[in-house]
Amino acid sequence: MARKHRANLREPHTRMRLSLSITAMVDVVFMLLVYFLLTSGAAANERVLRAEMPDSKGVSSNSDPFALETDPLIIELTDRDGAVYITLSAGLAPVNNAAQLERRLADVLLTRDTPRGLFAADHPIRIAAASDVAWEDVVGAFNAIIAAGYRSVAFGNTQP
């Protein structure tokens, strides 16, 4: 009986011709496409800068018990008539923008190629911005420090 049933299935007159209308599916797919294009386009130019946060004591944790206390390089940002003014500790000359800051810090980076550099890449750096400095200037300074090759950057509290 099963054989007969299978034979019937193979008979040409029992085959069904299925026609699938893909119009609805194309509609849905296009809608998804448009949606994802719109939502991804909104954030096309957005990037992130990874920042190191100080721990509860306000300093970066150091797991090396033999490491000496290292004074962080303080980078102070102040607003002077709408323009940022950047001063650096350790006797480094002040700069006026993020590009100059990056060059200045890159010059004093201690590497194998530049053994006369003052600061190693993991030397702690703290950004101390005045309360009225625009966020863009603070982020620009942070970006310049990282771009110069330093890895340990923290944000300080606002300066009066």
Binding site: V48, L49, R50, A98, E102, E136, V139, N143, I146
Partner: peptide, 10 residues
């Protein structure tokens, strides 16, 4: 905030 292409990433 706008930054030049530096340390930022997606």
């Amino acid at each position: 905030a706008r930054v030049s292409a530096g340390a930022s990433s997606r």
